[in-house]
Simulated scan of single mutants.
Amino acid sequence: MRAAGKKFHFVGICGTAMGAVAAALRDRGFTVTGSDESVYPPMSTFLESKGIALHSGYRPENIPEDAEVIVIGNAMKRGNPEVEAILNRKLYYVSLPEVLKELFLRHRHNLVVTGTHGKTTTTSLLAWILIVAKLDPSYMIGGIPANLGKGALFNDSKFFVIEGDEYDTAFFDKRSKFVHYLPELVIVNNIEFDHADIFSDLEHVKTSFRHVLRIVPQNGMVLLNGDDPNCVEVAKESSAPIVEIGFSENCAQRISGATYGSNGSCFSLGDETFEVPLIGEFNVRNAAMAVSAARF
């Protein structure tokens, strides 16, 4: 990605992630414009408050003549008037995950939460643990946790907690988004067949998870659901240390003593006991993953 680019145009700017990154770039002094099919509050007012010029609808003339980097959203497809103009004019374009990688994640300790289910909850829990520990992490979550009040925060902390989606990156890059996130630690909550619009079968899904685990460095770590055979299988090719977490005896970090009530759950992990205001075994697993990642 061009390091010198200071003028960005976002195609599909009003998506939650696109808008958050566009605002973060504006806060860093970049010039940012954008367009979307539907421009309306609260995203439109949020972006306009940052000094970002917005266009409703997609038209070639929305793209500034001096735009240096075009960020094309995941939902954009061939036939979109701006996409076609970008290709015809041979403009420099990238995906949102590429922007995150080069301008926000490089040189950070990136904690990437993946899995078919539980990503948003586990990412939220991990971010909150680090905030309470006064580590002041950046984070990007696929939802808005009640206690955080927003789904993304970009600061200069060395820690970045990010929800790692296995969905594809863009129409021009069919790899999963999470392969761009420079993971130092990866959580794999579970792996099941999902997203039948882009994955042909379970094996196809597992291949994407293998890709991200192959790029975890040797001084990093992979935290797996040790009770899920699919998770254990995909980690075999990883060169990073692996810790299995779960209820079964084979898990290095074994969850025990779990109890569930109407107001939350309680469980032990190693010699420590934890209480969470979340109900059920699934959320105990999410919390155990977040605790283990925070210890890394």
Results as ranks from 00 to 15, higher is better:
V94W: 05
F154G: 03
T207H: 10
N110H: 03
F172W: 03
A3G: 09
D136S: 15
T45N: 14
F159D: 05
F247D: 10
V39S: 01
I13E: 00
G57I: 02
F267A: 01
V161W: 03
E166W: 01
I86R: 05
A24N: 02
E249Y: 13
V179H: 10
L105V: 08
I86F: 05
E203A: 09
S256Q: 15
I141F: 02
F296A: 09
T207P: 02
H195S: 12
G264I: 00
K7Y: 08
V284T: 00
G270Q: 05
Y167H: 09
A288G: 11
L100Y: 04
D197M: 05
A22K: 00
L111W: 00
D227L: 11
A22W: 04
L148N: 06
S49A: 13
L100E: 08
V234E: 03
G280M: 01
A20Y: 00
P42T: 11
G151R: 10
G164C: 02
M221G: 14
F46W: 06
E184M: 15
F274L: 07
S200A: 14
H117Y: 15
S208E: 13
F159E: 08
Y93K: 05
A196P: 07
L223C: 12
A252V: 05
R285G: 06
S292P: 06
L278C: 06
E281I: 09
Y181I: 11
G29M: 02
F160T: 11
I86Q: 00
L25D: 05
F8C: 04
L96S: 08
K6S: 10
D136E: 14
V112R: 04
L135Y: 07
Y181L: 11
G51W: 06
H204G: 14
I198S: 08
F159C: 05
L185H: 04
